[in-house]
C-alpha cells in the first residue's frame, strides 16, 4: 500500500517535472525541473530495489550532468527566441517526418506484434542476501575486469585529448609556486642592510612582490 502510494507520488512528480522542463520559459528553471525529474526517477529505482542505479542517477546526473547544464545555460549566450523561431519554421517538416516514422512503427507492430522472443533469458536472478551495490562490486573487478580497465583507458585518452587540444602555455603569466612560498625562510626573505651613519636605506627591489606588504 505504502509502496503504491510512493510509486504514484514519484511518477506524478516525475512526469510533471518533465513536462515543465519543456514548457517553462526560463532555461534556468528548466534545468532545475530536470533535476527534480532525476530525483523522482531515482525514487522509482529505489522502489524497484535497484538502489545502486538510484545512487548513480543522483550522483552522476544531478551531481555532474545537471550542474554542467546549468553552467552552459548561464555562461553561454544562447538566444532562445531565435532557436524557437527556427523550430517553428521547420515544425511542419519535422511533424511530417515524425508522423511517418510513427506510422511505420505502428504498422510494424500491427503486422508482426511486439513478440520478439529472446532465445535465452537475458536476466539473471537477484542475488539473495546482499545488496546489489555489493553484487555489482563483486563481479566488476573480477569477472568484468577487462571491460573495466578498457573503460579506464578510454577515459585516460579523453583526458589527454582535452588537455592536448585546449591547454595553452601562455608566456608572461605570473603563476603561484606553493613550494617556493613554503620553502621561503629568513635567509631568502630577509635582507640585512648596513646603514651608514647619516645615509638612508635604499629599499632593494622586491624579489617577491606578493610578499611585500
Amino acid at each position: 500500500m505504502a509502496s503504491a502510494l510512493f510509486f504514484y507520488l514519484f511518477s506524478v512528480l516525475a512526469v510533471a517535472a518533465g513536462a515543465s522542463v519543456i514548457l517553462t520559459r526560463n532555461p534556468v528553471h528548466a534545468v532545475l525541473f530536470l533535476i527534480l525529474a532525476f530525483f523522482n526517477a531515482a525514487g522509482l529505482f529505489v522502489l524497484l530495489n535497484a538502489e545502486f542505479l538510484a545512487m548513480l542517477l543522483v550522483i552522476v546526473y544531478v551531481g555532474a550532468v545537471a550542474v554542467l547544464f546549468l553552467f552552459v545555460v548561464m555562461m553561454l549566450d544562447v538566444d532562445f527566441a531565435e532557436l524557437k523561431a527556427g523550430f517553428i519554421k521547420n515544425a511542419k517538416i519535422g511533424a511530417l517526418i515524425g508522423g511517418l516514422v510513427l506510422l511505420e512503427l505502428l504498422a510494424l507492430v500491427g503486422y508482426k506484434g511486439l513478440a520478439v522472443s529472446p532465445v535465452m533469458s537475458p536476466t539473471s536472478p537477484v542475488p539473495a542476501g546482499i545488496t546489489n551495490t555489493r553484487a555489482l562490486g563483486e563481479i566488476l573487478y573480477t569477472k568484468y575486469v577487462y571491460y573495466f580497465e578498457g573503460a579506464g583507458l578510454i577515459l585516460l585518452v579523453a583526458m589527454i585529448g582535452a588537455i592536448v587540444l585546449t591547454l595553452k602555455h601562455r608566456q608572461n603569466v605570473k603563476r603561484q609556486s606553493i613550494s617556493a612560498q613554503v620553502a621561503r625562510g629568513p635567509a631568502t626573505g630577509l635582507e640585512v642592510v648596513k646603514v651608514p651613519s647619516g645615509g638612508s636605506v635604499i629599499p632593494p627591489p622586491a624579489k617577491h612582490p606578493e610578499a611585500a606588504e
Partner: peptide
C-alpha cells in the same frame, strides 16, 4: 560485443584527437 565496442572506442577517440592535432 562489449569488448568490440570498448576497443573500437579506445581507438576512435585517440584518432579524433590526433586528427585535430594541429589545433
Amino acid at each position: 560485443l562489449i569488448a568490440l565496442y570498448l576497443g573500437l572506442e579506445l581507438q576512435s577517440l585517440a584518432l579524433y584527437v590526433i586528427a585535430a592535432f594541429k589545433r
